[in-house]
């Protein structure tokens, strides 16, 4: 199988169990979501898969090869073909937009060309020589996406990147990300607790609750019948929203 396979991943922080025996697969070529309420361990799971942290127990395989084992990273983060857009975007304020993109790439003219292409693709080429603080919220978001895309990753991890964005910018970014699996053969993995983001961007999901997988599979099917707490909450929320939409559509009396 192409993609990640997690085998009994466990992680503790200061004696507190954050992840407990997580076993699942993230197959390539699909738009994935890791869903769960705050503190359920979804960001930790993403950091462990990406190689920013090693698991305390369990192994991770990528395309059948081991990449993480207890307490050690067999393959470092930069070699896993992963890019990530962080919740706070993690743009370096003293580098221009172009420098932010190009700094991690090899020093040659083709890297700069690649970085410029990435900025172009995300519609931010005109601001290539601006500093992050000089960009609007939406432009910063697109810069973070451009930086992630410049290294031509196979997997794009998105750690709640839309929090605090207004709806127009959010729609624009989501449209770009949604097209990635088809246009660039990239598997996206979105971490979120927002039902709208999940429904818009994810085909398959892994539901986490208190550091354990409560359900996983096709999102549409899970929304219909899953007993996972997060799915129940999503269903209730989407029901309320659809009621709101229906009542708004009623003619005034």
């Amino acid at each position: 199988m192409k993609g990640f396979r997690l085998n009994s991943i466990t992680k503790k922080y200061r004696g507190r169990q954050v992840l407990s025996k997580i076993s699942c697969s993230i197959a390539a070529g699909t738009r994935w979501g890791i869903l769960g309420p705050s503190g359920s361990g979804k960001s930790t799971l993403l950091r462990i898969i990406s190689g920013l942290e090693a698991p305390d127990a369990g192994e991770i395989y990528l395309d059948g090869n081991i990449i993480s084992r207890p307490g050690s990273l067999v393959v470092p983060a930069a070699m896993r073909g992963i890019s990530m857009v962080f919740q706070d975007l993690a743009l370096w304020p003293n580098l221009t937009a172009l420098e932010n993109v190009v700094i991690g790439m090899e020093k040659n003219p083709s890297s700069i060309e690649q970085a410029k292409k990435s900025l172009e693709m995300c519609g931010i080429m005109e601001q290539a020589h601006s500093y992050p603080a000089e960009l609007s919220g939406g432009e910063q978001q697109r810069l973070a996406l451009a930086r992630a895309m410049a290294r031509k990753p196979r997997y794009l991890f998105l750690d709640e990147p839309f929090s605090g964005l207004d709806i127009g910018i959010k729609a624009n970014i989501i449209k770009r990300i949604k097209a990635l699996p088809d246009t660039h053969s990239i598997t996206t993995v979105l971490v979120t607790h927002d039902p709208f983001e999940a429904v818009t961007l994810c085909e398959k999901v892994i539901c986490l609750d208190h550091g354990e997988i409560s359900d996983s599979g096709n999102l549409k099917q899970l929304l219909e019948g899953s007993k996972a707490p997060i799915m129940k909450a999503f269903r209730e929320f989407l029901d309320i929203c659809s009621e709101g939409t229906a009542s708004a559509a009623l003619p005034a009396t």
């Binding site: 950091r47 990406s50 190689g51 920013l52 470092p76 983060a77 930069a78 992963i82 890019s83 990530m84 962080f86 993690a90 370096w92 700094i103 991690g104 790439m105 930086r147 290294r151």
Partner: peptide, 8 residues
């Protein structure tokens, strides 16, 4: 984290 992922 971003630097590590980007290979800096």
């Amino acid at each position: 984290h971003a630097a590590e992922i980007q290979g800096v």
